[in-house]
């Protein structure tokens, strides 16, 4: 599988690690630093990345970029609600990297290396193009006459939505609790619901079908996304290199373009 000497990769990995240290400046949780230490690794095989549904667009891009930077390495992506992914990993799914949309779901996984926060995301109201139901703000979510989709409480967007509603004293009247944020977004895109609470980045990713409405209470629940390698990753070197890549300048650029905020 490994057809080339690791010279170029080593150089890249080193570059990435330096970039990470320079950008993030947080040396305490340092999977990046340790990766730089073992920088002579020969990358090959497949890297299995389990990522939160809200990362679908950006991680697909990052996976392609990573494969380009490391010829001979294949990135396999598995997107779902963070809680479903945590469950899969605990049941023995062969994951190398786990990127969760909330620390809570990261903590549910046993045998994980120290995670690093790589982005932040806030909620936004998504409505179908043209806003046919005339949604104006969070209070419309308490209107039984409106069709509303929320994320189920066990996935991060649902947990964040719960915090937002609690903070604002609104009791939502949802018509469906979706399994991950993309499922909620799809229901908006199809016009099946009048509104859903999704992430800002999801609204951006589907801007042809949906419109976003910002609301002040969103500041009450900002999700921090942790990423980590698995302790028993089938491909530990590949896992480290991928996490480093996500934390690198190039990785940050892709994530910022998708609307994520720096941690």
């Amino acid at each position: 599988m490994s057809r080339r000497p690791a010279l170029r990769r080593t150089a890249l990995a080193g570059l990435a690690a330096v970039a990470v240290l320079a950008v993030s400046g947080c040396g305490d949780d340092s999977p990046a630093a340790s990766a730089a230490g073992s920088g002579t690794t020969n990358l090959s095989g497949t890297v299995n990345v389990f990522a939160a549904a809200s990362l679908t667009g950006s991680f697909t891009q990052l996976g392609k970029d990573f494969e380009k930077a490391h010829p001979g390495v294949k990135v396999t992506l598995n997107f779902a609600g963070s809680s479903a992914l945590a469950q899969q990993i605990n049941q023995g799914a062969p994951a190398d990297v786990f990127a969760s949309a909330a620390p809570k779901n990261m903590d549910q996984v046993t045998g994980i290396n120290p995670p690093a926060t790589f982005v932040r995301n806030t909620l936004e109201i998504a409505v179908p193009k043209g806003n046919p139901a005339g949604i104006t703000g969070l209070k419309d979510f308490a209107d039984k006459g409106k069709k509303i989709a929320l994320c189920a409480v066990q996935v991060p967007c649902g947990a964040a939505a719960g915090q937002v509603f609690e903070a604002s004293g609104i009791t939502p009247e949802p018509d469906s609790l979706e399994q991950d944020v993309k499922a909620a977004l799809t229901k908006v895109g199809l016009g099946e619901v009048d509104a859903a609470l999704v992430y800002k980045t999801d609204v951006l990713s589907a801007k042809d079908e949906v419109e976003g409405i910002e609301f002040p209470e969103a500041a009450k629940a900002v999700n921090e996304y942790p990423i980590a390698t698995l302790a028993d990753a089938p491909n530990p070197d590949g896992a480290k290199a991928f996490v480093d890549y996500v934390l690198s300048v190039q990785g940050k650029a892709v994530l910022t373009a998708a609307g994520f905020e720096a941690p």
Binding site: A149, D175, S176, L177, E178, Q179
Partner: peptide
Amino acid sequence: ITFAGNLPGR
């Protein structure tokens, strides 16, 4: 789950 969504009790 695709067509009818998911709401406990409904």
